[in-house]
Amino acid sequence: MKTVRLTLRYDAETIHPMHRFVADSDAFDAYRMVHGNFTGDGGDDNAFIFHVVGDPTVYETALAETGRVSDYELTRTGDRSFTVYVRDVPDDVDDRLLETFTRGSLVTLPPLEYRSDWTVRFSVVGDPADLQRALEEIPEGIETSVERVGEYDGGDAAVGALTARQREALRIAREVGYFDVPRSASVDDVAAELDCAPGTAAEHLRKAESTVMDSLEL
């Protein structure tokens, strides 16, 4: 089976209102779909679970006001983190996109990372012909970038959610001993190998660790 890592960029007509709200707000740091029914049965509400890092009160107010959600339940997991179960009322673009990536041999691998630049990043596994067909049938108003193509090796979806720079930062941190117990290397050591400032290296590591932890079932 092949795996494809994709980035979908929405325009003002196709972006989901909650994605747009979170992207345009300063109250959120991370927004990921971690589970979904992915049935592709057009016309029915879709059920999804999101992990969010940000202000739960601001998020819940917007969620209650949107006309695209029939039901939800928000559970706080920390001061600035929460999960939300959502029954989403799909529009035509949502139905077509969901059907595109669930047809035939295709399996969409969570998490789906909803980003502040109006993009969504995720991986799909399936037969090459089905993957090619899906890319050709993405609705208008959504720009598609193929980030990576390869053989599916059963790797953890959490790794697939990392950016290339975050994976490099974790790899170097492991090699120099940053994760040893006791720790035998510092952020400065990681930064030297990455050829960046210590603050930048620390940010890469923090975001990478957050992505991996959010993807685990604990």
Rank of each mutant, 00 (worst) to 15 (best):
A129S: 15
G43H: 12
A23N: 01
L8Q: 02
G150E: 08
D71F: 15
H19R: 05
E65N: 14
R87D: 14
R103S: 15
V84L: 09
R171P: 04
G104P: 06
T7D: 01
S25V: 07
R133D: 13
A161M: 05
R121G: 10
T61Q: 10
I172D: 02
E203Q: 06
R103D: 14
G160P: 04
L106Y: 09
F21C: 00
A158H: 00
F122R: 09
D55T: 03
V86C: 05
E113G: 13
S215G: 15
A191G: 03
A27Q: 11
T102C: 10
R96A: 06
L98F: 09
V181G: 09
S145P: 02
Q166T: 07
T3V: 15
P198L: 06
S210N: 00
L194T: 12
T100W: 11
L112D: 01
A201V: 01
L106R: 07
S184V: 07
V89R: 13
M18I: 09
L216R: 12
L97E: 04
S25N: 10
D71K: 13
L194P: 14
T14Q: 05
G141I: 08
P128Y: 03
A158V: 05
L74C: 07
V181H: 14
C196T: 15
G67S: 06
M1G: 11
T7P: 01
G177S: 04
E193Y: 12
G154T: 04
V124W: 05
T75G: 01
D88T: 02
L97W: 04
E209M: 12
G150P: 05
F50E: 09
W118N: 08
G78W: 09
T211K: 07
G141L: 09
A192Q: 15
L74V: 12
Q132H: 13
E73M: 12
R20T: 00
T14D: 05
P182Y: 12
T14L: 02
D94I: 02
G36K: 03
A208M: 05
L6V: 10
V149Q: 10
G54V: 02
P56T: 08
T66M: 07
D71H: 15
H51N: 13
K2L: 11
A62C: 08
F38S: 05
V22P: 03
M33R: 14
R68L: 04
Y85W: 11
H204W: 08
G36W: 02
T57E: 15
V124R: 00
Y178W: 01
V146H: 08
A27L: 08
V86K: 06
E203S: 11
I138W: 06
D95G: 03
E65R: 14
Y31M: 02
I15V: 15
A129L: 13
R133E: 07
R121C: 06
T83M: 04
R121H: 13
D95C: 07
P182I: 08
L98Y: 04
L112E: 01
T77S: 13
D45A: 15
D24C: 02
D91F: 01
S116Q: 14
T61F: 08
T14C: 04
D214M: 04
E217Y: 14
G141E: 08
V146M: 02
D156F: 13
T200H: 12
E203L: 09
G54C: 06
Y152C: 06
A164M: 03
S145H: 14
F50T: 01
R174W: 11
E143V: 04
I15P: 05
R9K: 12
S215D: 09
V149L: 10
A191F: 00
I172E: 10
H16S: 03
L194R: 14
G36V: 04
A202I: 01
P110E: 03
E113Q: 15
